[in-house]
Amino acid sequence: MKLKPYHSSILATAAALGLAAWPLFFPDAFLYFQVLGMACLYGTLALAWSIYALSGAISLGHAAFFGLGAYGSALLNHYWHWSPFLTIFLGSLASVSFGLLWSLFFRRLRGVYLGLASLAAVEIPRVIIDNWDAVTYGSMGMTGLGKLPTLSLGSWQLAFGSDLKAQYYLLLTVVIGATILYKLAMGSRWGWALRAVRENETAATMMGIRVNRERTKALLCSSYLTGVCGALYAHILGLIEPALVFSLHVSALPLIFTIFGGRTLFFGPVLGALLLYPLEQLVFQPLFPSGHAAVYGLVIILTILFFPRGIAAWITARKSA
């Protein structure tokens, strides 16, 4: 009993429409705009992480790309006063450069070894930025970064920097765009090659697939999108510091959201972020102000024990049973 592929597309489209429509009925729910907006950002981050995971690589170091994108964009904005819309895309190239180094040095590492190396890799950019006070203001970080600018479409004013509803719609658009791209990638010839690499590298090589090249392509796409997420994050907050963007938390979240949501379906990572992040922020934070992040640990344990393929696979399997 397999779910027809278009069923999950219908489900995902319905969910996207729901997410786009609910603010029409609750135009003043600012807390929810903010929380769901961030959930969309984390959903994009989880997708970015999953692109690399499609090749079978489990990264514990995506904070490196997140932080470099954030700092790349922040520094361009700070020193040259370029618009964040430009610096977000240019600054994230810093993440891609680090991705190139990563793929060069870690090309022989697999599994747990790659995980540990990636965990350590975050320390390199973090220590450099932490100590290069003259340029990055060190561990003090930077404040007063350019907020996301306002876009004028005729009489429409989309103040992404100050209007939480506009910001929510921006982040929703980003996550929907990323999900569509991710689905297209998974269904493409390249996506098939990555799946082969993930399932059996020896066999994939034997079938003529250039394993290292395909995995590197996945890492570069993944690192760029992660950088974009970091840059968006920095400009939404308007401030940045190394401890914030190079944290283990940032590396762990996309992994948690993806495992919880389900790594086998294209909307799994986003679903995980959209369910878990609001749960943590809106339910657990008021209840347990000091230990709310522990919910992530709890959820991961329960997921692995009871739905090892994630919520998305569990829902779809039940529907078709």
Partner: peptide
Amino acid sequence: QVFPEMSVLENVMTG
């Protein structure tokens, strides 16, 4: 050396 999660047809299609 097979692709364990792929179907038999998908395995051959990869080649």
